[in-house]
Design a protein around this nucleic acid. Sequence first.
DNA 1: GAGCTACTGAGACATCGTGTCAATACGTGC
DNA 2: GCACGTATTGACACGATGTCTCAGTAGCTC
Lengths: 147, 147
Amino acid sequence: MLLSLDALERRIVVSGHRITAPRRTLLDSMQQLGDHFTAEQLAAAAPGVGRATVFRTLRLLQEIGTVCQVILDDRTLEYRLASGGHHHHAVCSECGSVDDFENADIEVLLHALASLTGFTIETHRLELYGRCAPCTARLAGAELPIG
Amino acid sequence: MLLSLDALERRIVVSGHRITAPRRTLLDSMQQLGDHFTAEQLAAAAPGVGRATVFRTLRLLQEIGTVCQVILDDRTLEYRLASGGHHHHAVCSECGSVDDFENADIEVLLHALASLTGFTIETHRLELYGRCAPCTARLAGAELPIG
DNA sequence: GAGCTACTGAGACATCGTGTCAATACGTGC
DNA sequence: GCACGTATTGACACGATGTCTCAGTAGCTC
């Protein structure tokens, strides 16, 4: 569920920054791009907004937790509107969809594991690559009738 | 424990590629650079070897599982000689050290979690950022005597 | 030693992101 | 409604990182 433009703008104001026309344009474009997008796609979707502003705004939104980065399998970078909070990504290599997931068990397990070796976790990054449920189902169905 | 130069070269041959002087130089430099290194550091440590060859060789070594990538907290990329097999990285933000770790529980948990949502995991990427054991101890000690 | 082919180095190029700086627009106080 | 201080912007140069091309070279194999 995406936040409304209003809610997104409120976040920017609350964090002590200004609402400007370019930022409004970018927020709007992000919502239209949907699930996930590259910086270049966003720049293309918001003509009239300078490239530097696109990157600056993305960085600002990351800082206030409104946008998160998705590192794809080939290490390219995409962005995604986030509702906030720590989460991970499941990236489908078939259709390219990206889903968020969060799981307390993983966090607990990681910290337990780290404490065994004395490592203190400050943050972590976890990305899953594979096939989403619809693509898994579709491909499983396609495999049955050979030929 | 690092593999010997011999063992590294054997891997290249077994995978159907040639041992050349530049590749030998690069393998040697990688071992001398130790724990982890950037492509640029490797290029600097192997003068006479072209930049393109450095990147090509790193890619080749990744493909045959001899080198793995470490994505740092700030998204910069480092490389690391790997003994092979799937593993994760624990990156110390104090001293910059990188440790491998592997844990079957995590893999099991991830697959269990994925199957709940129907997602099929092909691969994943997990990086921990924080403080290694020595740095944790050092900083804990430093905190006690204030002033 | 000859020949096939993988490999190399140089350098241009592509991609992605940042730094600079003068100009502009936002929000506030009046 | 207007002036003002400052955050923000756009244009553009720059930097970091990696890829592509292509003629020349060097490893294997026979």
